[in-house]
Nucleic acid binder design. Sequence first.
DNA 1: TCATTATGTTACCGGTCGGTAACATGCCGC
DNA 2: GCGGCATGTTACCGACCGGTAACATAATGA
Lengths: 221, 221
Amino acid sequence: MLPVGNILVKEGYISIVQTDIHGNSAKTRKAGRFAIPVRERILVAAGDLFHKQGIRGVGVEAIAEAAQTNKMTLYRYFDSKDELITEWVRGIVAHKEEDWKDLNARYRGDPQGQLQEWSRRTAAKLRAMEERGSALGNAFAELPDPNHPARRVIQEHKLREHKRIVRLCKAAGFRDPALSANLFSMLLEGAHSCGTCVGMRQIGEHLVQVVDLMVENNRRQ
Amino acid sequence: MLPVGNILVKEGYISIVQTDIHGNSAKTRKAGRFAIPVRERILVAAGDLFHKQGIRGVGVEAIAEAAQTNKMTLYRYFDSKDELITEWVRGIVAHKEEDWKDLNARYRGDPQGQLQEWSRRTAAKLRAMEERGSALGNAFAELPDPNHPARRVIQEHKLREHKRIVRLCKAAGFRDPALSANLFSMLLEGAHSCGTCVGMRQIGEHLVQVVDLMVENNRRQ
DNA sequence: TCATTATGTTACCGGTCGGTAACATGCCGC
DNA sequence: GCGGCATGTTACCGACCGGTAACATAATGA
């Protein structure tokens, strides 16, 4: 069991526990209050299962169980499974965009630095990933319906991300910003799929190397 | 209706027809023989639907209908849906490896040329794709079970493909073949996901440009 | 023509899934 | 302690899905 905050990972399933004032774990109490509110627990559990077993491969019942609650409560917080999926995706996207903002704050006025640091962070995520690929990428593949709200959220996010990269390439003075940006995007996206056969660690390292080389080449020219 | 050989595409579903000696379409005959054998028709229909609606999003009944046959006949040719999926994946993989062989024959002893031509062919496929991404990539995302035969087929294929690229990079005399090969793989794989937000045409063109640049740089050095 | 073989038809099975209703139980603030 | 409110429990519904059995029909070849 690997403690991660209040979330314990056990046998591939997450379970969320809490100890009350007397040190009794929530599991021993019949209906104890949890440190993490239900809604969030459900989202965490859903995300974990969605990512591991595929969105369509996991039922709401299993999600509720993994979140230490039940189906009824789940449906009191989410109108439907599709809404739960969408909310989950929204969370990931929000987190990534927070990451971009943080990057922008730390490397203000240094577009090259931002690109390099982003590649380093991506490499770190790849290293921590192992096995199954990108959550957003998989979700996108699993939701073919162009009208599915979650799919739209992913699509819009990818577009924003790409525009951000184009902006950075322009600011960094790349000779052909559109081409450079596409190159960066292809590398960043491709690393996830390639990692499954080359190994996440190596692909991460090489991603960083290539990005560093590109930036260096651009500086010298 | 867009005629593609004996396969007609209508309203997103494929239907396979044939005219007999007297010019009567198979549809008018109650149980006419088809030019394309049932098994192949099922595979084509399954592939089309799998790719468009997702593997888990389409039922065997719908596949049988799209193939102008019925569920019973489908199960006479395939033991299970999973086997049908696997057979379909095997077909795609075989086709891609044929493509590699053809490349090797046409550009024998010219590894740079092979890499460039492969990028051009990939770009052409991207252009013809539009909308939904790579069939293999999506299938891989939709089959999380590491023991699923289809997943293994994809995995092994990706590995072979990557090894082939490494071999080409070595033969082409790239300074760091492992890194160059990973770069190529990332580009090739990433192009499919990026295409959905940048546009398949542009991403294809830029893919070719980048690969050409890499080869050129390698030649000059 | 007749028997064989391939295909179509219908009906069904068990299981799962998303989603809901009705009610029971616990928790907390007053 | 009591009442309101969040949560848990159980049972259920209709729909769909993968897969099978039994039988009917059509094409083919001898």
